[in-house]
Design a protein around this nucleic acid. Structure first.
Length: 362
DNA sequence: AACTCGGGGAG
DNA sequence: CTCCCAGAGTT
């Protein structure tokens, strides 16, 4: 156990960081409220997602679901639609489930202590710390990727920040820095510094309020920290989709299973080809397995490339005809253009849909 | 400890 | 292209 790890003086760090934050912080909608519900929504959306991306989703979501009760009682499909294209859809399924638990078990109020708030689905160590400090003034750290980067540079931590041991050390360091007065402001200031000054590739050290306290800067190592673990190479998958028309301007769509990749979103029939499998034959096989129907596969309509977190796909859509049987199995429907616009699709599937039937006004 | 889970911004 | 983003849940 190290006796004292503090090299830069905590008071000095707090004073400089908070002074900078008050003068330079971005005006963000969730910084204009003290409503724990609104802060909760923002923190879930901000998981692995940049501020600029979140802002319009946040505003739309709070307009549509302004309270725990409105969210708890809304159909999941509507909540999913407001989340469309934001990604990591387990977040919104957990959000909806947690809203139900808060309404039922906590009288509609977000819990203000770590034990209860961490039990809610979707709230882990970081998000609990963020909500507790920002909405309730609890003196706890909120360590996200920005904070890990700032701290690893400030203290010149050369062990991988992907190691659990390093993460615990960083959280312990932040714990010693969080002030009793307005801890949420301090946590946000640390994240803000990482977002706009202490950036991953080319940090703006000359404009950093902590430049004189930063060990990595003193060693000329700022741009080389933090050290990250090795990344795996991502495989590529060939995906095929069937655009089956009913001859009346409607197209067959199906809903994905509630769990797993893009859970509960809608898609076109189809899926992943086996290695070296011909696309047309593979599509017939997959659609028969999926819906129990026989189809004829015509010409390719569109092909889109898309990157997920740990694999890439090439998605090719074919014009198809229903030859035999009627769909059975998962949730499915014949959908007109307006109807599919109102249902949640993934980014890649939406591109296919728009190439088949461009929305009005475009 | 290693995987799974999206989409987009920035360089 | 690559890397990373106000991470959490599962195995």
């Amino acid at each position: 156990m190290k006796a004292k790890e503090i090299f830069p003086d905590p008071k000095r760090i707090r004073r400089k960081l908070l002074g900078w934050y008050d003068g330079h912080r971005r005006r963000l909608p969730w910084r204009e409220t003290r409503d724990p519900y609104a802060i909760w929504i923002s923190e879930i959306m901000l998981q692995q997602t940049q501020v600029k991306t979140v802002v319009p989703y946040y505003l739309r979501f709070l307009e549509r679901f302004p309270t725990v009760e409105t969210l708890a009682h809304a159909p999941l499909g509507e909540v999913l639609k407001t989340w469309e294209n934001l990604g990591y859809y387990a977040r919104v399924r957990n959000l909806h489930k947690a809203a139900g638990e808060i309404a039922e078990q906590h009288g509609g109020r977000i819990p203000d202590n770590r034990e209860e708030i961490t039990r809610l689905p979707g709230i882990g160590r970081y998000t609990a710390g963020a909500i507790l400090s920002i909405a309730f003034g609890r003196v706890v750290p909120a360590v996200d990727g920005n904070v890990r980067r700032v701290i690893s540079r400030l203290f010149e931590i050369t062990e991988s920040v992907d190691d659990e041991e390093t993460r615990e050390r960083i959280e312990a360091l932040v714990q010693t820095l969080v002030p009793k007065r307005d801890p949420g402001r301090f946590n946000q200031a640390l994240m803000e510094l990482g977002a706009v000054r202490c950036t991953p590739k080319s940090p703006s050290c000359p404009a950093c309020p902590l430049q004189d306290d930063c060990r990595a800067r003193a060693q000329g190592l700022a741009h080389r920290l933090p050290v990250r673990g090795k990344k795996k190479t991502v495989p590529h998958r060939e995906v095929v989709a069937a655009v089956i028309s009913d001859g009346k301007g409607r197209i067959l769509i199906v809903q994905r299973p509630a769990c797993g990749l893009l859970g509960s979103l809608w898609k076109f029939p189809g899926g992943i080809l086996n290695p070296r499998e011909a696309r047309e034959e593979g599509l017939k096989r997959i659609v028969r397995d999926e819906l129990g129907i026989g189809i004829g596969v015509g010409s390719p309509l569109a092909a889109v490339k898309h990157a997920y977190t740990h694999f890439r796909i090439t998605l090719t859509a074919f014009s198809c005809t229903l030859l035999e049987g009627s769909p059975a199995g998962p949730q499915w429907r014949w959908a007109g253009t307006g109807e599919s616009e109102a249902l949640p699709f993934s980014s890649a599937d939406r591109r296919i849909a728009r190439s088949v039937a461009p929305p009005l006004g475009h």
